[in-house]
């Protein structure tokens, strides 16, 4: 028994070391890793590049990613007179009860906006294609602010461009700026990112599980995205929102998990999926699939 425990512990250490080596040498892009440089907002995770409108600059940084997997990716504001803003956001579909279809989301947004007193729907939800992605577009206005939301689904996230101006012409100019949105993916080349799949971190997929030790605060839902290699090993652990202590123990524990080798349509595939972790009173750990 003692020999077995020592062997298992040793194997675990090797796995941890291998995982850390892999992640250190090739850090995977994260949804909130986009930056503005040389007039371009570039986001490697979503494969998008957006030419910042002339006269705009990065605004205040947004909040940390939320417990529901919501990200403020970038805020762009005019360098001079404050006449319009651009908010680029993403909602991880593994962790929120929202439609996973761009048009359904645009319609739901329209319903929500129409319920606000004085808010006018200027342009009902309609499909548009930008940078090769199918977006849902919604225009609405109230109290002198003219707004457009363009939303699309990428890698199991709803990515949205939220444009606001204090004139119709200003909004039109911001909408036109989306012509500068391009997909960084090279046409014809195979996509390198893992396939996103909901609810693939459950017990029936697991071969080896290591529980993280409980860390404060308890009863807080912690959203985690993991990338599972075609061999079933965990290649990346992205703890989206947690305390620093929780983040560390979860990264170490989940890096040791092993799954059945994932397959898509019968072919081995690298996938990314999500799960929610919650530390409970008494040091127990609860998992849920990250599904809705």
């Amino acid at each position: 028994m003692g020999w077995l425990l020592r062997t298992c512990a040793c194997a675990g250490l090797i796995v941890v070391a291998a995982w850390h080596q892999g992640s250190a040498s090739e850090p995977m892009p994260r949804p909130d890793g986009g930056v503005v440089a040389n007039g371009i907002y570039a986001n490697a995770y979503f494969g998008l590049r957006y030419a910042v409108p002339a006269g705009f600059r990065p605004g205040l940084a947004g909040p940390a990613p939320s417990q529901s997997g919501y990200y403020v990716l970038a805020t762009l504001v005019p360098a001079k007179e404050f006449t319009g803003t651009i908010l680029i956001a993403a909602q991880d579909l593994f962790f929120a009860a929202v439609p996973d279809d761009a048009m359904a989301t645009a319609r739901a947004m329209a319903d929500a906006m129409a319920r606000l007193p004085g808010m006018a729907i200027d342009r009902p939800p309609e499909p548009v294609t930008l940078a090769g992605h199918a977006f849902g577009r919604l225009d609405f206005s109230g109290v002198g602010l003219f707004r457009s939301t363009f939303v699309t689904a990428i890698r199991c996230h709803l990515v949205s461009f939220n444009l606001t101006a204090n004139s119709r012409a200003g909004r039109a100019a911001l909408v036109a700026s989306l012509d500068g949105l391009v997909d960084a993916h090279v046409a014809g080349a195979p996509r390198a990112e893992p396939v996103c799949v909901k609810n693939r971190a459950g017990a029936d997929e697991l071969v080896r599980k290591v529980d993280p030790p409980a860390r404060h605060p308890a009863f807080t839902k912690i959203p985690v995205r993991i990338v599972i290699g075609a061999d079933g090993n965990v290649k990346d652990v992205h703890v989206i929102r947690a305390s620093d202590e929780q983040r560390g123990v979860i990264e170490r524990a989940l890096g040791q998990w092993k799954f059945k080798p994932p397959a898509i349509d019968g072919h081995a595939a690298e996938i990314e999926t999500g799960l929610t972790i919650e530390f409970r009173a008494g040091g127990t750990v609860a998992y849920s699939g990250g599904g809705r």
């Binding site: 939320s66 529901s68 739901a108 947004m109 929500a112 939220n162």
Partner: peptide, 24 residues
């Protein structure tokens, strides 16, 4: 909190609840 999630999503807002460490 969930009811106006579409309003929040356009504004960079999320939110979460604090919980009792005793009963959750």
């Amino acid at each position: 909190l969930a009811d106006n999630s579409f309003l929040k999503q356009q504004l960079g807002i999320a939110g979460q609840f604090n919980h009792s460490g005793n009963d959750g």
